Simulated scan of single mutants.
Amino acid sequence: MDSTRIDRWLWAVRLVKTRSAAADACRGGHVRVNDRSAKAATPVKPGDVVRARLHDRTRLVDVVRVIDKRVGAPDAVTCYVDRSPEPVPGLSGPVARRDRGAGRPTKRDRRELDRLRGIE
């Protein structure tokens, strides 16, 4: 096999959980093949560079082998070389949210928010 659809390949190498999620990512403009926006049917072949924004993280992978059937995780990682940038530490901490219509935060709420943010 020399090429396959990008949505099928993303699913087969386990970068996304379902093939429909891969198609949705392509439809939303979150997948690029060789710096070109990719539709779900865009062919991918060995040597291509795939950039995908998946699960709030940018993945940059080089295609080494093309598969169209989902395989086990140890086999899947042999199909690409991951050149993704390291996630920025500290951005995945707790997020302070308030209910809509709750009004202004009280002094106590503000202090708790500051404590969460690391401001003392």
Rank of each mutant, 00 (worst) to 15 (best):
A76C: 01
R111L: 11
D99A: 14
R98K: 14
G72N: 04
V95D: 14
V88I: 08
A102S: 12
V64N: 08
V81C: 04
D99C: 08
R70T: 09
R108K: 15
R104Q: 06
P89T: 09
G90N: 02
R111D: 15
P94Q: 13
D109F: 01
A73W: 05
A102K: 08
G90E: 00
R98V: 13
R97G: 05
D109N: 07
T106Q: 08
D82C: 05
V63M: 11
Y80K: 00
R98E: 10
A96W: 09
V63G: 03
V77I: 09
T106W: 04
A96E: 07
I67T: 08
P105G: 00
S84A: 01
T106R: 03
H55G: 15
D109S: 05
T58P: 03
V66Y: 06
A73C: 04
V66D: 05
V71W: 02
P105D: 00
D75A: 12
G103S: 06
G103N: 03
R108E: 11
G90V: 04
S84V: 00
R59W: 13
V61A: 04
R110Y: 13
A102N: 03
Y80D: 00
L91S: 07
T78P: 01
R83Y: 05
V88T: 06
P87H: 03
R59D: 12
P87S: 06
G93K: 07
R57Y: 10
V81E: 08
P87C: 04
R100S: 14
T106H: 04
L91Q: 12
R111F: 11
K69E: 14
R83A: 06
P87R: 03
G101S: 07
V64T: 07
R59Q: 14
V66W: 08
P105E: 00
C79K: 00
P74D: 14
D75I: 10
A96N: 08
R70D: 01
C79E: 00
D82I: 06
L60K: 12
L91M: 09
A102E: 10
R83D: 05
V95F: 13
R59F: 13
D82Y: 02
H55A: 15
R97D: 01
V63S: 06
V88L: 10
R100Y: 14
V71S: 02
Y80Q: 00
D62N: 12
E86Q: 10
K69L: 07
L60P: 04
D56M: 09
E86I: 03
R98D: 10
D68H: 14
V66T: 12
G90K: 03
S92V: 06
P94E: 13
P74N: 10
R110S: 10
V64D: 07
T58W: 05
R98M: 13
V71D: 01
R70F: 04
G72M: 04
R100L: 13
C79Q: 02
R100M: 12
R97W: 02
V63K: 04
S92E: 11
V81I: 10
V61T: 02
K107T: 15
V64I: 13
V64C: 11
P105C: 00
Y80G: 00
D109Q: 12
D56T: 08
L60G: 07
V63L: 09
P89L: 12
L91A: 05
V66I: 13
D75N: 11
C79R: 00
